[in-house]
Design a protein around this nucleic acid. Sequence first.
DNA 1: TGGAAAATTGCACGTCATGCATGAATGCGT
DNA 2: ACGCATTCATGCATGACGTGCAATTTTCCA
Lengths: 194, 194
Amino acid sequence: MTAVGRRERKKLATRAALREAALRLALRHGVEHVTVEQIAAETDIAVRTFFNYFSSKEEAMVAAVAAEADALIGEFRDRPREEPVLHALREAVARVIAGSDADALRLIVRAPSLLPQRLAVYATREKALAEAIADRLGLSPDDLYPAVCAATALTAMRVVLERWLDRPADHAALREQTEEVIGLLAAGLERRLP
Amino acid sequence: MTAVGRRERKKLATRAALREAALRLALRHGVEHVTVEQIAAETDIAVRTFFNYFSSKEEAMVAAVAAEADALIGEFRDRPREEPVLHALREAVARVIAGSDADALRLIVRAPSLLPQRLAVYATREKALAEAIADRLGLSPDDLYPAVCAATALTAMRVVLERWLDRPADHAALREQTEEVIGLLAAGLERRLP
DNA sequence: TGGAAAATTGCACGTCATGCATGAATGCGT
DNA sequence: ACGCATTCATGCATGACGTGCAATTTTCCA
């Protein structure tokens, strides 16, 4: 697939090192107090080079989220095509979450200054997920359903994740809440006064 | 309601003036090339004072979107309680959109540098909308349904708006697409290969 | 091995955003 | 109308951010 020489590998490694350094420093000093200079120093590269990899400090910090979003899409594409869309999404989410670092996620999700960039990450992944959904159903990526399904599903997952991070709970609870939300989306959201 | 003296009125006026100046300059020179200094000069206030009203240039530019989101929630609350949630949302959206400035919206929505802040605006309104939905249904704001419904509905509206702005179309088309998306949410998003 | 392509780095520069101190404007009670 | 307390506007200083540019180093490959 992506044939990589040493050059590519080193770039990937540097990018990962910067991402991890940013997160490590944020855990140690708090997200607000980390500077690009610190991140660069921790990774032993020039400040200028940092900006060759990330266009902002925030982008480096939410890179972990971006990686998980990409993983989610990959898992979704790997699900058997006979599965209904939301069912496949639920399983993909479960697999990604199982291998996630809750502490790092909590740090990122709870930092107000990272909210805009984090949301931007989700939004930029919407298109890729919409294409995956369109592929699965044999629809055009320009159709309304793939776009709406991708965007709303990602949003619903975000809400679940935020709620879960806000309460002390285990991974089983997260899985349960994921299923509940998928159930809501599948059943339709219309409601009225009893 | 909000009893306002001269002080409050002047603050509101200054805030509106800054917001409009930011948008006007963005229309004239492009979003990327507007500086805080220009906005302040155009409004004839000190640069330092600008930051008393908005914490960033981007926040001033998406203030119009924030105002529309607030209007949406207000319209939603004004809908009769017997209406089902999504029906009320659809009508609220239609009313807000009818009075919106498509050119300004297009400018904001199409500017990549404003994407994070714009999404943050929607996200911060989710809580208020969730409370409104909970009120309507007699649920607790901590329940899952209001949170998910608010977040996904706002997201779906965002997708519709973005798609509509990307194609040349009139307000009738927007209304139509809004109804289509609400229909999707109401009917449930699950789908499988035929 | 030699040169093309790409990555790293330092430097300069403009912008952003905030804390702090000071003076001006406003609202309120008397 | 007066004086006082609160709030607001402003200038200044400061540190961090992000980018263009050019020089240098590293990597790749013919």
